[in-house]
């Protein structure tokens, strides 16, 4: 999903060729770039954009899954889902902290999300319509996120790479948990199996879109690849995801909703049908079915929580003043 973080990224930079060359040398030597190191402005901006978008995705991503916490069909599932959604919030916190090392505050990033200036992954603009969606999201959406994020563990920017190591461990747990939910449904009653198939039908294509546009249409990939912010192209990662996921669906006895899906012996991977890029761009540009609702929900929580944050600040100030007065 975080390939989408580079859409519209401005990697332009105005440093001298010598500076850029020296920086590139460090990148090529697999040196980790740390917050206080000199870095090209384009590098910094690209990372702020990508990490910020990644953080926002975690936060907005709490909403579609949170939609089922109160209806989870067993106490075990309820606890597991609650813990999972909490993990996503934790990832958000982690990532905001990583972005803050680049000189942008969490508050600024939040304002950008709420004003619509900053984006988040297109996948969270689809609704969760049944319990099966919770399984499918864990399996496909977290699965796709892992494909994107495993290479990010080797991202050239140290704080982001380190955050990704922990995030990936948790995501891979979520993915197994999601798959296990879907497996239980696939082996359950006919209604449960139908619920699982319906969820797969709805989430399959949006999950493939998480990897971002085709390489040919991905304008900013080259610079990001050179800076080792990105290690694989969108199409490479998408292919890896499809190749890993199709056999998993077959094992469950579910059908991937793509009539053109076929094993290609020569390339050692699956060929797939055309992705609806019209839908992709529509959703990326903010016209997804849940786009307005998601931002409204975030804005409501933020606005209604304003008095709490103000009170916490006021209390801390009073406390500090009393301490000074007592000394």
């Amino acid at each position: 999903m975080y390939s989408q973080g580079l859409i519209g990224a401005d990697g332009r930079t105005t440093e001298t060729p010598e500076f850029l060359q020296a920086f590139q040398k460090r990148i090529d030597a697999e040196d980790k770039i740390e917050p206080k190191d000199a870095m090209p402005e384009g590098y910094r901006k690209t990372l702020v954009r990508q990490i910020g978008q990644h953080a926002h995705s975690e936060i907005v991503g709490m909403l579609p899954e949170g939609n089922w916490i109160t209806r989870a069909p067993s106490l075990r599932r309820k606890a597991a889902l609650l813990a999972k959604v909490q993990d996503e919030g934790g990832h958000g916190l982690y990532l905001y902290a990583a972005a803050e090392t680049l000189g942008v505050s969490r508050e600024e990033m939040t304002e950008e999300l709420l004003s619509g200036k900053a984006k988040y992954s297109s996948i969270f603009n689809y609704p969760t319509l049944s319990w099966a969606d919770i399984g499918i999201i864990g399996w496909l959406v977290d699965g796709a996120a892992i494909m994107n994020q495993i290479p990010l563990c080797r991202c050239s920017f140290g704080p982001y790479a380190r955050a990704m190591i922990r995030v990936c461990k948790e995501e891979s747990f979520h993915q197994r948990q999601g798959y296990e939910i879907v497996m239980t449904l696939a082996q359950g009653t006919p209604e449960q199996k139908e619920m699982a198939q319906d969820a797969l039908n709805r989430w399959w294509w949006p999950s493939l879109m998480m990897f971002g546009p085709h390489d040919a249409d991905s304008q900013h990939s080259d610079q990001s690849m050179a800076w080792k912010i990105k290690r694989f192209t969108n199409d490479e990662l998408r292919q890896k995801f499809i190749d890993a996921t199709v056999p998993q669906a077959e094992y469950l006895g579910l059908t991937v909703p793509d009539a053109d899906l076929a094993w290609n012996e020569a390339k050692g991977g699956y060929d797939h049908g055309p992705i609806d890029w019209g839908e992709f761009w529509r959703v990326v540009k903010g016209h997804g079915p849940m786009a307005r609702d998601r931002i409204k929900a975030r804005k409501k929580a933020w606005d209604e929580g304003a008095w709490v944050r103000e009170a916490a600040l006021a209390h801390a100030e009073k406390r500090a003043a009393r301490k000074i007065a007592a000394e």
């Binding site: 909403l63 949170g66 609650l82 909490q86």
Partner: peptide, 15 residues
């Protein structure tokens, strides 16, 4: 309490 998840006044409380 779980009804708050994703709707708290600040991220720390969402955790």
């Amino acid at each position: 309490l779980s009804e708050w998840c994703g709707h708290a006044p600040m991220l720390e409380e969402d955790l």
